[in-house]
């Protein structure tokens, strides 16, 4: 059987204060595997540990315990990172760079030769429909346009694994549909995608398999096609419906 692209074994993350006293146990003994070519959804309510898990996978946070491997390598290995594309929850672009310069910058970080970088930049700008504004500073872009630049920069190195943290965040319905279509197209071409989203309908559309996180632990994991009910119903059953929310009592 082929080695999974992402593998987490008994991974935990405890945040500590200045005196090293534990404050939050964000992830607790998590096991997770993402296989080549699948679209994997990491779902969960706010504070369930999704972002912490992704940051540990990317090598941006060190786990307190457990083992993480990316393409069979430690997450901070250059060879693993060369095969990775990452779209964070917010775009975090350099506001003084133009869209073209932004893509050329990230192409440079992937060590692409200048000619190849130019070609891919042109292709990606065309793909995210920003060719007309390629020479404009991204600081003046709308949230949706900035999101598309960030998505293009995640794809500039032709990654084997694309990690999307809330990919449709801030996008209008048309752009959301375009992103979903793009993810499906990338998956068809064999790219592995790991995505987190609060929008369960989006995940239902694009994911092959999902894991639901709650309080840092896996509440459920399985293929979307085998859930037997809508993802929303399944999700609410696993993490609670929210009916016990005390706002009504407070207002009364």
């Amino acid at each position: 059987m082929e080695e999974p692209i992402v593998k987490l074994e008994k991974v935990s993350k405890t945040f500590r204060d200045f005196w090293l006293r534990p404050t939050v146990e964000a992830v607790d003994g998590l096991d997770l595997e993402v296989r080549r070519g699948e679209v994997f959804g990491l779902l969960g309510p706010n504070g369930s540990g999704k972002s912490t898990t992704i940051k540990m996978m990317l090598g941006l946070l060190a786990p307190s315990s457990g083992k993480i491997s990316l393409f069979g390598l430690p997450p901070h290995a250059k060879a693993a990172r060369a095969k990775l594309g990452y779209l964070p929850e917010l775009s975090y672009l350099h506001p003084f760079l133009t869209a073209r310069e932004t893509l050329m910058y990230y192409a440079g970080l992937c060590n692409l030769p200048r000619r190849v970088a130019r070609e891919r930049t042109d292709q990606l700008l065309e793909m995210v429909k920003l060719s007309d504004v390629a020479a404009r500073a991204v600081g003046g872009f709308s949230k949706g346009m900035a999101r598309r630049v960030a998505l293009a920069s995640a794809l500039i190195g032709k990654p084997e694994l694309l990690v999307l943290d809330e990919p449709t965040s801030g996008l209008d319905p048309v752009s959301t549909k375009e992103v979903k279509t793009l993810v499906k197209a990338l998956a068809k071409k064999g790219m592995t995608v790991l995505t987190t989203s609060h929008l369960l309908a989006d995940s239902e559309d694009i994911c092959d398999r999902v894991m639901i996180l709650n309080h840092g632990k896996s509440a459920a994991e399985g293929k979307v096609s085998e859930l037997g009910e809508s993802l929303e119903e399944f999700f609410l059953a696993k993490v609670g419906s929210g009916d016990d929310f005390a706002l009504a009592d407070f207002l009364a």
Binding site: G59, L60, R81, Y92, Y106, N111, S153, G157
Partner: peptide
């Protein structure tokens, strides 16, 4: 602080 460093750190850059 603006989290842009993350985007550099996930690339194959030392």
């Amino acid at each position: 602080e603006s989290k842009r460093l993350q985007l550099t750190q996930v690339r194959p850059v030392s």
